[in-house]
């Protein structure tokens, strides 16, 4: 104890002595904190693309190449023709719908710049496996989505140099925010005619139930499940959930014994093989590893076990 105290005193004295030789940085705009970002570090992270094409990497991709890639990696959510599955965003259609009661805001009908499509596919798609596409894939899938919107022909090849020249139909219809756009006044008395008030009641039956939910099913894997199943939960939660939680694109829903039972008629090994390599069946499309190629075969196998065995 005694020696510890002595040590503290020594340290304090040292600190005091060295402080006196340090200038306070309060009025200095430069603190000298941080490392220089190297060209290599910047190149690895600087992925953004602008409408003028700044930021596009060297490369190209054709509509023809994009078709198969789109069908394998995008169609399960966005539909084969860009029509959108379930609540997932439609990518095509909706021309001249922006003034309608139910506008259909798609890449073709709404997006002002083609660069945005390239940038977004590159940074965030496919949804379960962001930043997994090659440069060629991003060019080709972008080209294909433009083709789905009749903005390019089927022999079109999208490149670093021609992307900025593609004019999107809705580009001119955006303008900078011009609010405030209302001019209410602070009236205190006789502000309106009470006899003219019409009360609109709310729609019934769509407010979610707010009772505290009974304890949600334990998120921990249950002890009577197989080891593969327990290991598969994490993969399911981050990758497979997107489609197999809701059943979009004909995906068998987790724990749906009946539907999984039919699939399992071919044997578990076949189901796992289809999940790893991809499969197009009568009822739906399974992209290879659900589009997340960073998963190992073992991950996929475990996740399939989890979906089959989960209650």
């Amino acid at each position: 104890m005694f020696s510890l105290n002595k040590l503290l005193i020594t340290l304090t004295l040292t600190a005091l002595v060295s402080l006196s030789s340090v200038a306070f940085a309060a009025d200095d705009t430069h603190y000298g904190i941080g490392e220089k970002a190297t060209a290599e570090q910047i190149a690895g992270w600087d992925i953004d693309v602008r409408p003028d094409g700044k930021g596009l990497p060297k490369g190209q991709g054709s509509v023809m190449q994009g078709e198969a890639m789109y069908e394998a990696k995008c169609a399960s959510c966005h539909g084969l023709f860009g029509e959108g599955e379930g609540r997932w965003p439609p990518l095509a259609g909706g021309e001249d719908s922006l003034t309608e009661d139910r506008p259909d805001k798609t890449v073709g009908s709404y997006w002002p710049y083609a660069s945005t499509l390239w940038d977004y596919i590159n940074r965030a798609m496919p949804f379960p496996a962001p930043q997994s596409l090659t440069v060629t894939e991003v060019y080709a899938i972008t080209a294909y989505v433009l083709y789905l919107n009749d903005l390019v022909e089927d022999d079109f090849v999208l490149t670093q140099t021609n992307l900025a020249s593609i004019k999107m139909p809705n580009e001119q219809n955006f303008y900078i925010d011009n609010r405030p756009d209302t001019n209410n006044t602070r009236c205190m008395k006789n502000c309106k005619d009470p006899s003219k008030i019409v009360v609109i009641q709310s729609l019934r039956g769509i407010t979610p139930d707010q009772e505290t939910e009974t304890a949600p099913e334990s998120s921990e894997a249950k002890p009577n499940l197989s080891e593969a199943t327990i290991a598969g939960k994490a993969t399911y939660d981050t990758s497979c959930f997107v489609c197999h939680g809701s059943g979009i694109a004909g995906a068998p829903k987790i724990g749906d014994k009946e539907v999984w039972g039919k699939r399992l008629g071919a044997g578990m090994d076949t189901v796992v093989k289809h999940a790893i390599n991809g499969y197009v069946g009568d009822n739906g499309v399974m992209p290879p590893k659900g589009g997340n190629l960073t998963l190992s075969d073992e991950d996929v196998k475990n996740a399939v076990h989890y979906m089959v065995e989960a209650q």
């Binding site: 602008r50 506008p103 805001k105 997006w111 660069s115 945005t116 940038d119 303008y175 925010d177």
Partner: peptide
Amino acid sequence: WHHREETSKYTDLMPDGRSRRFSY
């Protein structure tokens, strides 16, 4: 940059079919 979350989303479609952007 006109990225997805400031063009496709988070822009305000007006009744004339035009849209406000950068409505921060």
